[in-house]
Design a protein around this nucleic acid. Structure first.
Lengths: 190, 190, 190, 190
DNA sequence: TATGAATGAGCATTCATTCAT
DNA sequence: AATGAATGAATGCTCATTCAT
């Protein structure tokens, strides 16, 4: 009788271990052995849940991207303007968890260079993110439908740009400073 | 007397080959063999000019960072406002060359996660870049000295954020669109 | 459950292969590939049992040193004088097996020059050997306790000196001649 | 006009550098680069004086073996008994120079395992050494001609055995102790 | 399901050697 | 004579992967 295992849960657990290793040692340091050890298993186990390393990485990336949408539910109770602000601020690397996910994102961006499949995942996630922000831009009355995409792009650019700087110079970018720059970008136009 | 070789020039030539490989295949794909082949030499030659792979990568990164300053001279003939705009626009991945350098930058950002020396290089280059932009912000009268840093950070954030999006979704980001978002960020305040 | 393997036995088996290669081709010829091939495995397997080459060599050396004590049990039934003679004679390179172990010993002596850890192993093994011979010297009544160490050193020196000559000039040193010189050294004093 | 160079002198100078490197780092550490650097030249120069590494090593070994005979002249003024004692004592590793040559000898003994040419050199040098000692044994009246070879072998064995022990346990073997064991072996028989 | 033994390709690196200057 | 640029084979080692148990 085989032990009962929740396969999806185990995959997520292993992907989380992979994320931690990637954030700590980069993708180059994320060997099967290392990831397995981080998760408390052996390499053989990894193979049970992911046919090969490539699939492990792809799944880990997808989980990391999915995180952006994870907080959506709580926004349903907010006004569109609040939801927009919350969406942008929660993307900043202002705590350990979001920092970890940013490091993973950067690692996968670098990896995407050589892997069209990852590049497509990344591109589609971005497009969906942009649509989502654009909807909130319209709903909150910041811009007319025709200008929503530009405004969304501008806002996302500010968030991503701040995040990249904050990631590699945390001393210059305490959480308050990160939020302040984003809040400025959200300030009423004119 | 042995064959005469300009060592610095040869190092730059090899680093350029490394950049091309990294842009094409990521850092993981930048094996000594691959870089040597791209440059038209053998691995032994690489070792002649860089004591090990780490030094090759560090040098390649430094050359990539140095590129940001390479265009400075031409800006001496511009007004501060023109120089500011030129600095920001020339950082966008709007042609093959700047795209290549952005891909290298992303690769090294990912690598910096696990390498404090690269992280320090990256951080210092960013700080210097910010100072330089802040000086132009003041000189062009966009902001008072007290607000120059914030304004510089905001402008750089927009440029970097646009670049990250454009890098992985070139179809959505033709050069004109990239410039237009940056120009909007440069539009007279209020 | 994976294949069942007796790890210690496998390590000994691999060390024995290493000894054969060292005796045949010297330490320089004892590459991981060569040792693995001699043992009938691949390099990857070697790494399974020894974290690196250094550990393989150290273990091989220890096994070679341990051999000196391996014959001790049979000596328990002998008189001290017989045990002393047996100890010394069995150290001579008079058959293929002891010859192989001498060649390994010489190889490690040379290696010890550049490796303090091996040098310490070698020195300690020698000291223990000396103590053991000195005890038999006293027990057999060859010398008083105060002179036992000198007598042990002299006897060991003769054995080692004969061995070194016999090793590189076997034609001049058939087994009988080796034993005869050692027996002369054991002849009743005066 | 080529510079005038005393080729033999230069070869000896390079072999001496090789000896120092071998004594310090073993034969494995005696790369062409390292030997050249120790001598204050470049690898290219080495090749001028030795067609390849093998020849460098062979020549270095020959020079090391030749050293045993170097002190012969001074013995011409001694009585046979004095010359015998001087021959044996001067072979002990009692100072830096003789220690260095012993380390080189051990390194080459190990190397000889895999190199018949070195093994032959070693064997012939030993035979000549033995003849030379046997002659002194007879001349000094220690033994009759028929027993001279055995006595020479015994004496050499003591010296070599002491040397091997002293080489790897200098703390237990100060020069006086080494000489004392050899002097005991030289003590009048019976 | 989970293990870990075994594989073999690929890596960075070292090195003896060749040779244009 | 002397240099050092360039080569490419070999090395120790890492690692994803396979598979018997």
């Amino acid at each position: 009788m085989p032990r009962i295992v929740d396969v999806d849960e185990r995959r997520s657990e292993l992907a989380a271990a992979a994320s931690r290793v990637i954030a700590r040692s980069g993708i180059a340091g994320a060997s099967m052995r290392e990831v397995a050890a981080e998760a408390g298993w052996t390499t053989g186990t990894l193979v049970h849940y992911f046919t090969d390393k490539h699939e492990l990485l792809r799944f880990t990336f997808e989980e990391s991207l999915a995180r952006r949408h994870a907080l959506r539910e709580r926004r349903e109770a907010m006004t569109p303007a609040e939801a927009l602000r919350d969406t942008l601020l929660s993307a900043l690397p202002t705590d350990e968890d979001s920092r970890l996910h940013w490091l993973v994102t950067v690692a996968f961006c670098a990896q995407a260079t050589a892997d069209p499949e990852l590049a497509a995942l990344q591109r589609d996630a971005y497009r969906e993110y942009r649509s989502s922000v654009a909807r909130l831009v319209v709903a909150s009355g910041r811009a007319a439908a025709g200008d929503a995409r530009s405004e969304a792009e501008r806002l996302i650019a500010v968030v991503d740009g701040v995040a990249m700087q904050a990631l590699f110079d945390p001393a210059s970018w305490p959480p308050g400073r990160q939020r302040s720059v984003v809040d400025d970008a959200l300030a009423p136009l004119g």
